[in-house]
Design a protein around this nucleic acid. Structure first.
Length: 493
RNA sequence: GGCGGCAUAGCCAAGAGGUAAGGCAGCGGUCUGCAAAACCGUUAUUCACCGGUUCGAAUCCGGUUGCCGCCUCCA
């Protein structure tokens, strides 16, 4: 038969059929993201089949990674992991700003040269990313090493008439770019020019134009913080840095631009104007924005920053911070308090406890169809939630429901080691996207185990004083002991 | 002045026309030498307020109140 209609009547409303690969392979790609450009959720179609390029506005290297920036990077990581889970190859680019005003001021205050000052923060940034379980790889270019690219970029704009030089600074001519304001939805005729900028510092033809290359000040010249270009001794603007890095490393347009909502205007508007003027194409198709992290109802920038490094130093685990940042939808403000971070840590630990329990499960069982279906359903629920603009909270609620059911089964002895293994591998699979779980490590430490054997011996003698003393000693050494019917378990804090 | 966002239990937080997911804390229980942990059970007649549309509204429309962000260089 070449064509025709096949009618099948399924006894269970077709649910089994619908859950088979036969059906799911034909499903259209269903990833949806909220695109700030259109202010609506849109289905994702890659520019290049099977690949996706992500541009992430990275940090200025004058201080440690703050929670706000961490939220943005965790969002980018979630996008990356979701796409990788769907089989995409990801090209990620994170810009590192090491020539900005605050870094210069910080270096001066610290009595260090700029490169040394920023190198420390770059190294610590890398460590913090690892703690947050942000996938390694991709490009993390330093602005200061790409002056040539910025000069080329500027030249291109000058040639095309989008920029002009004035008194040894180079500015972008906004009047030449008709789409200016489209991304941030700002009506240029209604903004209050000069309210937040000291226009006397600039020699722009139009106060709304923005700087590409800014003439170095006397103090900067003295310290050697400038770059020699055909237009003079200058420093590049943040906007130019990002646009030039995107062009160099991604070649063309990105699929995603991930930024913070606070830099939508002017930075992203400018970055996009530059890129579009130079290449004829917008910088990205999808513009994703993480909302603020607040404290006392105010952005952290106003109330005092909280850094990831601080939290780790205070004893938080990186995965707890990640979970905290992830568990509220990225487009809603997130209020930081020590209590809410602790609540997140306890919630996250439920998964670790379940994984530990599963790994201790003994007993033979045959895999049951009911369990397989339940696990398949969990995967469907979780991926569907994430496909809907990265709804992590909904995805987690499905996982907690599964965890409760599995725990109840374990309580009633309804799960043997085969079933336990099936649950474990499904959780591990889904955690490839979330990155918040810790499968139990089989730790060997003869000294610890010898002490535990002593304690078990004491307990057998009902010598509780000795048993408790050993437990306290191990606790002092950072080792938590938990008694279970199968014997004592221990874990390093 | 312009543009935009948000208000759901003690706290955090999903849900975006079909009758309130989930987490933390609390309470009750199981387990335990004790403790801790863990696990189980339980917790909103109601979604800031007032109107409207609808058979049906937390969800749509209008208004009110409160909070927040952005409006050209701190990146």
């Amino acid at each position: 038969m070449d064509s025709g209609l096949i009618l099948a009547i399924a006894p269970d409303s077709g649910e089994r059929y619908l859950s088979t690969p036969l059906y799911s392979e034909k499903e259209a790609p269903s990833l949806h993201f909220y695109n700030t450009l259109s202010r609506s959720k849109e289905p994702f179609q890659p520019l290049k089949q099977g690949e996706a390029a992500l541009f992430v506005d990275g940090p200025a290297l004058h201080a440690n990674l703050t929670l706000g920036m961490a939220r943005r990077l965790v969002l980018a990581d979630l996008v990356q992991r979701s796409l990788q889970f769907r089989g995409f190859t990801i090209h990620r680019l994170v810009s590192l700003i090491d020539v900005d005003d605050r870094a210069i001021a910080g270096a001066e205050a610290a009595g260090q040269d700029l490169a040394r000052f920023t190198t420390r923060f770059r190294e610590e940034f890398t460590e913090d990313l690892a703690a947050l379980r942000i996938l390694p790889g991709g490009h993390f270019p330093l602005a200061s090493r790409h002056m040539d690219d910025m000069v080329d970029f500027t030249r291109r704009l000058l040639e095309r008439g989008f920029a002009y030089e004035k008194l040894r600074s180079v500015y972008f001519d906004i009047s030449r770019f008709k789409d200016y304001g489209r991304l941030s939805r700002l009506d240029l005729t209604k903004i209050r020019v000069g309210k937040t900028v000291d226009l006397d510092e600039y020699a722009k033809e139009n106060p709304r134009d923005f700087t590409l290359l800014k003439r170095a000040k006397l103090g900067e010249l003295k310290k050697g913080i400038y770059y020699t270009t055909p237009w003079g001794q200058v420093r590049p603007s943040w906007h130019l840095i990002c646009a030039a890095l995107a062009l160099k490393y991604l070649g063309g347009a990105a699929d995603f631009h991930v930024g913070g909502i606070e830099s939508l205007f002017p930075h992203e508007e400018n970055e996009n104007a530059l890129f579009t003027a130079a290449t004829g194409k917008p910088l990205a198709r999808f513009w994703l924005h993480s909302e603020h992290v607040l404290r006392d109802g105010r952005p952290l920038r106003e109330t005092g920053e909280v850094t990831v490094r601080d939290l780790l130093a205070q004893g938080s685990r990186g995965e707890d911070v990640r979970y905290f940042l992830l568990s509220t939808h990225y487009r809603k403000p997130l209020t930081f308090t020590a209590e809410s971070l602790a609540a997140a840590a306890r919630a996250r630990a439920r998964f670790d406890h379940l994984l530990l329990r599963l790994s201790l499960t003994e007993g033979d069982d045959a895999p049951t169809g009911a369990l397989e279906e339940r696990l398949f359903q969990a995967k469907k629920e979780v991926t569907a939630a994430l496909d809907d603009d990265l709804n992590v909270a909904r995805a987690l609620s499905h996982l907690f429901n599964l965890a409760a059911e599995v725990n109840a089964d374990l309580d009633r002895g309804r799960l043997g080691k085969n079933g336990a293994a099936a649950v474990k591998s499904r959780l591990a699979e889904l955690d490839e996207i979330l990155g918040v779980m810790n499968p139990p490590q089989h730790m060997r430490d003869e000294a610890v185990e010898a002490r535990l054997a002593e304690r078990e011996e004491a307990r057998r003698r009902r010598d509780w004083a000795t048993a408790d003393r050993i437990r306290d000693e191990l606790a002092q050494a950072g080792i938590d002991v938990t008694d279970t019917p199968a014997g004592p378990r221990w874990q390093r804090r």
